[in-house]
Amino acid sequence: MDGEPLPKRRALNIEMVISLGALLLSWQVASLFLPEYVLPGFQLIFQEFLKMAQERTLFWDTLLTLYRILRGLITGFIVGALFGVVMGTVKKTEHYLMPIVNFIMGVPALSWTLIVILWFRGTETRILVLMLAISFPVFAHSVLDAIKGVSKEWMEMTLVFRPTRGQVFRMLILPSIVPHVLTAWKVTVGFAVRVVIVAELVGASTGVGFRMLQQQSLLNMSGVLAWTLVLVVSGLGMQSLISMVESRLLRWRPTLS
């Protein structure tokens, strides 16, 4: 019996090419009628890229910003996961720790930026503390929720074999919370890119944020846009990296397709 053929997976997403193509085309056409400092054409933005590459800022500043994001998020994840695990596994600790986590989470990222500038010396310390403050509550919440969501049925099945606490954590809780943790990473990465740029704008002399500020003070719109593109691409790159890790770690999950 012949079944309906499965839809083939396309190598290129045509809809995406059309929508992005239309956007870029309208940009280019509009640039012909508007001044350079409002809407520069692609050739100008491309020239800016070449200049950034020649001056080596494209590589080093991008790398530095990415490093700051990654270092901050890893630190935030370690602290947040620790909070989440303690709250999720030690009785009543949630009542004590959650108000602190929520208070820190309630402080706006911009306020944190100003606070760390006043509290700490040295760009790297400031950015690290800032990234920690904005990311760890998110990780703490997601790890706690994930632990609370571990199936009671799986827990009972496991307890019948009389595992140690360590085994319960390693063999049941840890694998159960992986999907939630990866979702938290995806959400936080996008947020972290925005926050680190603000931090570099306000309090750094290196990094993409600082370069953008430089270009803005020179009224160089092409430069601002070139660096913005770097950010967009970096953000998307990190998102797809997490997606790759996700599909590797969660290959056991049934897919709707």
Partner: peptide, 12 residues
Amino acid sequence: SAVFQTDRLLPW
């Protein structure tokens, strides 16, 4: 050991 109403297999 126990066999439960639902299989309680770990999906990963």
